Amino acid sequence: MQITEFKGMALDRVPRKVGIVGYGRLGQSLVSHLLTQGPELGLELVFVWNRDAGRMAGSVPPSLQLQNLDALGERHPDLVVEVAHPKIIQESGAEILRYANLLSLRVSMATHPDGFRLEGPLATMRSTGSRAVLYEGPVRGLCPHAPRNSNTMAAAALAAPSLGFDRVIGVLVADFSLKNMHVVDVELSGPPGPTGRSFAVHTHRENPAEPGAVTGSATVTTFWRSLVGCCQLPSKPGIHLC
């Protein structure tokens, strides 16, 4: 969908008020887009929050800096975009949902070990060869230990409720050859048909990335497009996966 398709729509409706939680690379990109393109798309940035408020100094107007996340209701947001860390949603998700829709945007990756941000037992694992499987099993067991590297898997579990987090399989691979690339493969198969053959889909995605980066180069643009697309949907409370 092209941005130009939204311009006419923005003139006929009240601007959607958007808050950004997190001011890392993705947060900075979304804030920049909202400040420069938001008005013509019918989007108004009403606050930016970051755990380290000093990071916003000099780049986010003081009037838009939210010092206390518990005070977000005072800004009356229609949509809150979390691009910080899953713990923020664990701690404040219920409070956010009292006032706005929550758009949780993440992209998982399989890449060079330096691109992982692992916790728990996975954080102590070391690859012994050029390519090693760090985890293969139910997505439910992976998400707590790789919250920033398992989001595509978690989205698949939500999109396939008949399988869910216990029957969707997640595989996390450390590959030393992928120094500047995040690679995601999705394999889907259905039940056997009358001929005994099953419908199958295999997608392969390669996203260029800086060495050691969690966020791929194309991901920044994808997050902005997702935010704009979500704002075109009918407004209703809840968590939206776009």
Rank of each mutant, 00 (worst) to 15 (best):
G216S: 03
A146V: 04
L79N: 03
T222G: 13
G22F: 08
R106H: 14
E95D: 13
A71S: 13
E5C: 08
S104F: 13
S162C: 10
R197K: 14
H204M: 04
K17T: 14
S104V: 14
G42A: 06
M1D: 12
G170W: 00
T222L: 15
F199G: 15
M56C: 10
I239E: 05
K236E: 14
I169H: 02
V201K: 06
V228W: 04
Y99K: 07
G22M: 01
H33Y: 14
S150C: 02
L172E: 09
I3K: 13
P121C: 02
N180Q: 15
Q67N: 13
N151G: 07
L11N: 13
E5Q: 11
D70R: 15
S150H: 00
C143S: 13
L11G: 08
S235F: 14
S59T: 15
R148P: 07
V184T: 14
D114P: 00
G120A: 02
R25P: 02
K236T: 15
E119R: 11
A84K: 01
L97Q: 07
E74R: 10
L11P: 10
V48H: 05
Q67V: 14
A218S: 15
S108Y: 03
V14L: 12
G8I: 09
P234G: 06
A157W: 01
P191T: 12
D185R: 08
E206C: 06
G24F: 07
G73I: 05
L41V: 05
M9R: 13
T203I: 06
S198P: 08
A174V: 07
V48Q: 07
R16D: 10
N207L: 09
V60L: 00
M56L: 01
L30R: 04
G93R: 00
M125T: 09
G19N: 01
A53W: 13
V173M: 06
P121T: 02
V81Q: 04
T124I: 08
G137H: 04
E210S: 11
R51N: 05
E95Q: 11
V81T: 05
R75F: 08
M56D: 04
S198W: 03
E44M: 12
G115A: 02
Q90M: 00
A110L: 14
T222A: 15
P234Y: 07
H145G: 01
I88S: 08
R197I: 15
K179R: 15
V220W: 04
V171H: 01
G54P: 03
Y23W: 14
C231G: 08
N50K: 03
R106P: 11
F176P: 05
G42H: 05
N149T: 09
P62S: 14
G137S: 02
T203L: 03
F165W: 00
P86M: 01
S92W: 12
P138K: 08
A218I: 11
Q37T: 13
V214I: 04
P234I: 05
G27C: 09
M9C: 06
G229K: 10
L64Y: 06
A94T: 06
T221R: 12
K7L: 11
P211S: 02
P62L: 02
V60C: 03
R126L: 08
V80W: 06
G19Q: 07
S108R: 01
N151M: 11
A155H: 09
G193A: 04
H85L: 05
A146E: 05
G238L: 03
S104H: 14
V168N: 01
H240Y: 14
M1V: 11
A94F: 09
G27Y: 00
L134A: 07
